[in-house]
Design a protein around this nucleic acid. Structure first.
Length: 486
RNA sequence: GGCGCCGUACCCAAGUGGCUAAGGGAGCAGUCUGCAAAACUGCGAUGCGGCGGUUCGAACCCGCCCGGCGCCUCCA
């Protein structure tokens, strides 16, 4: 039984979708005016994994993730660069797909853009005016917060509390300080769409309500996003959606914790953020491996807890993954008839599967699920020592592949550095260009095996030292062959 | 001022009332190996920020305190 922590109730609730066997979920995507940072990566990854786990659990999932492609920040950026705003959004949507692709984030089922839903947005605003919960002031339309009695139920805030600490500058045209814009009249030169209130653009919150309703219906199962969206964004989405339809909007609200740098929130305003792009460009590992390291690292902490980003954390993730891929290398080799090890394998696998699933079913506890995989790694290493058949090895590798798929891990066939691919990439440092090609390594390795056969250990050690200076580690196997890795 | 979160070994990180406090990384020792590497084995918190309280029993519940953080404004 899957249980999910619901921000709305403040508890872990048993998950029961509205329509049995199907899940409809909406996650707030990004505003496309800049490169994505690790915080975006974490959020995207968390919901990617949640989606994958739901699918793994047998649900048919409709996953909607939007792009906010019209907004004040975009207009500002366009102005700064002297470019049309459409060029800014196109550029960063492309960057988004590049970065998320590197991270192995699966595209959502539907990825709607605000600018392509003007009719729905305008219709929703009209409905709110018709119901007398929104009002027009010149070319703007505001949602009247006092008309929605349950305002504050998501963020657990009272209207009075909000006002007390409010640092919002009072807009005289609003009837209540907390009222928020549904539609903003356009100033000259700003992007604008025709509406009953004159040319303008949607407010930030309304687009999500309109797009969620269009693609998922008035009431759906899961709505997610970063913790910072609880207030005001999601609170406002609930208010305007419920006021418009008279029905519940989303039933389970999920929010991921922040990525921090040195115990502090990572944010644009503090200037202490890393973009996904720079992490990949600075990485000494090829793209696919860097992506997997990053995924593993981001999943070592439960999605609701804060996560401190650090090079040390990344290095540790690499070490752990090395252990897994070393095992996979062994599993790819021929085995010998076992002494009962084959019979023990299903027990170890079954145990890991149950632990994995129980962990994930408990509010997507990825650290517990990861621990199950680590235990399985140890168990199978022991079985290999006892003697595991070729078939059993294949079965074990397949199990890692299928369980790992929930996290997007363990899908690579080789965990080795590929210099040709690396050189093809843009940001290659001189150091990296001097990497030894695989063929040269293989040649030296063959020479070393010859030397070993002749008991010329001096030469063998020299060759190993030479390769070691290139960052290459050699493993001699009992049968006289050798493996190498970077 | 209001609302809320966190503090578990050198590091990461589960556990939130009841077997010896998961798992991993790093480290050390050992087995194996020509030497290594990998793998395996062993070691590692008598204690879960501190002090009280509730309870037969608490890392887990309550209170106070210390330390750190977030939201209340655009923000994943």
């Amino acid at each position: 039984m899957l249980r999910i922590h619901n921000t709305l109730t403040g508890r872990k609730d048993p998950f029961e979708p509205l329509v049995p066997g199907t899940v409809r979920m909406y996650v707030c995507g990004v505003t496309v005016y800049d490169d994505c940072h690790i915080g975006h990566a974490r959020s995207a990854l968390v919901f990617d994994v949640i989606r994958r786990h739901l699918e793994y659990s047998g649900f048919s999932v409709t996953f909607v993730k939007n792009f906010t492609d019209v907004d004040d920040k975009i207009i500002k950026r366009a102005h700064e660069r002297g470019k049309p705003w459409q060029e800014i959004t196109a550029e960063y949507i492309e960057a988004y797909y590049r970065d998320m692709g590197r991270l192995g984030i699966k595209p959502a089922t539907v990825e709607p853009k605000a600018t392509e839903h003007m009719a729905e947005i305008i219709g929703l605003v009209q409905e709110l005016i018709r119901k007398d919960v929104a009002y027009q002031v010149n070319g703007d339309v505001y949602f009247q917060v006092e008309r929605y009695g349950a305002y504050g139920r998501l963020s657990k805030r009272k209207m009075e509390d909000l006002q007390a600490g409010a640092r919002v500058e009072v807009d005289e045209r609003k009837r209540h300080p907390m009222d928020f814009a549904l539609w903003k009249g356009a100033k000259p030169g700003e992007p604008a769409w025709e509406s009953p209130w004159g040319p303008g653009r949607p407010g930030w919150h309304i687009e999500c309500s309109a797009m969620a309703m269009k693609h998922l219906g008035e009431t759906f199962d899961i709505h997610g996003g970063g913790m910072d969206l609880i207030f005001p964004h999601h609170e406002n989405e609930i208010a305007q959606s419920c006021a418009a339809t008279g029905k519940e909007f989303a039933r389970y609200w999920l929010h991921n914790g922040f990525v921090q740098i040195n115990q502090e929130k990572m944010s644009k305003s503090l200037g202490n953020f890393f973009t996904i792009r720079e992490i990949f460009e600075k990485s000494e590992w090829p793209e696919a491996i860097t992506g997997e390291i990053l995924r593993y690292f981001l999943l070592t902490t439960h999605y609701r807890s804060p996560l401190d980003f650090s090079d040390q954390g990344l290095r540790e993730a690499k070490n752990v993954l090395d252990g897994f891929y070393d095992l996979f290398k062994r599993l790819a080799e021929a085995g010998q008839s076992s002494s009962g090890a084959d019979d023990e394998l299903p027990f170890d696998i079954g145990f890991a599967e149950v632990t994995f699933k129980n962990g994930m079913d408990d509010d997507f506890n990825t650290p517990v699920a990861l621990a199950a995989l680590q235990q399985l790694r140890g168990a199978i290493n022991k079985l290999i020592q006892k003697g595991l058949s070729t078939e059993a090895r294949k079965a074990a590798r397949e199990k890692f592949r299928s369980l790992g798929d929930v996290f997007g891990l363990f899908q690579l066939n080789t965990w080795q550095f590929n210099p040709l691919k690396k050189i093809a990439r843009e940001a290659v440092t001189a150091l990296k260009e001097e990497r030894m090609p695989d063929s040269a390594i293989e040649t030296r390795l063959a020479e070393r095996i010859e030397a070993k056969k002749k008991k010329d250990f001096k030469l063998a050690d020299e060759i190993r030292a030479e390769l070691a200076s290139q960052g290459i580690t050699i493993e001699d196997r009992p049968d006289g062959t050798s493996r190498w890795k970077r």
